[in-house]
Design a protein around this nucleic acid. Structure first.
Lengths: 105, 105
DNA sequence: TGACTATATGTCAGATTCGGCATAACATGG
DNA sequence: CCATGTTATGCCGAATCTGACATATAGTCA
């Protein structure tokens, strides 16, 4: 992971729970964060393709604009569940979601 | 989804929040539940392949035997996050996880 | 049968995440 | 410059999820 990306993630609230963690997330933690980033990007892509604002999508899926912003940014306070629910509501196929899950950045 | 599977899911705590939901989950809810079932199966497969009991795996990933049982059963009280974390800890690749996500049952 | 191991199910206090709200930051077109 | 629309960030009470524990169920071996 490049340093600027790391900066973004730390700003987004990601912190390692491990002792040596100041220098990096564990491989598993990294994989999970990368999945969320990838899924967040997919959500933004689908949303913008549909010409929807975050606020409009939020109402459509029963959430709030701030949550959608956080989903797309893969903020530490959003779960995989929430992002996947949003993706499904926005019309993403399981196939598309799977591709984002496996994508290496 | 066949009726016996539905029975299992209702026993596992799944209930639709929609009004017409007594007759079925929404397509999105169904897709999410199917993803969890698929990932739960994968977890069981990986665990048994490694000849680990639920209890041993649980300690290894910092959880409890009952949680692992619920993950594998896709109980309504477990999140996608928890299952995916467990899978990564158990050594599943993102590719393998992605396949479970896209799999149609 | 009883002892042992593995898995399933239920409960609960504490931790985490949620939607909603306020507000800041940024862009675009008057 | 101002107004308008969009997105980002911080906060909070309510809702949800977690690990831990107790206990039930089921299989195996002697």
């Amino acid at each position: 992971m490049d340093p600027s990306e790391r900066e973004r993630l730390e700003a987004a609230g990601w912190r390692s729970a491990t002792v040596e963690g100041f220098l990096g997330l564990s491989p598993d933690e990294t994989a999970l964060v990368e999945m969320k980033l990838s899924l967040g990007s997919l959500l933004r892509q689908i949303r913008t393709s549909a010409h929807l604002s975050q606020g409009v999508l939020a109402r459509r899926i029963g959430s709030s604009q701030s949550r959608v912003a956080k989903m797309e940014a893969a903020d530490a306070s959003v779960t995989l569940d929430l992002i996947v629910r949003a993706l499904l509501s926005a019309g993403a196929s399981r196939q598309a979601i799977a591709e984002a899950v496996s994508a290496q950045n």
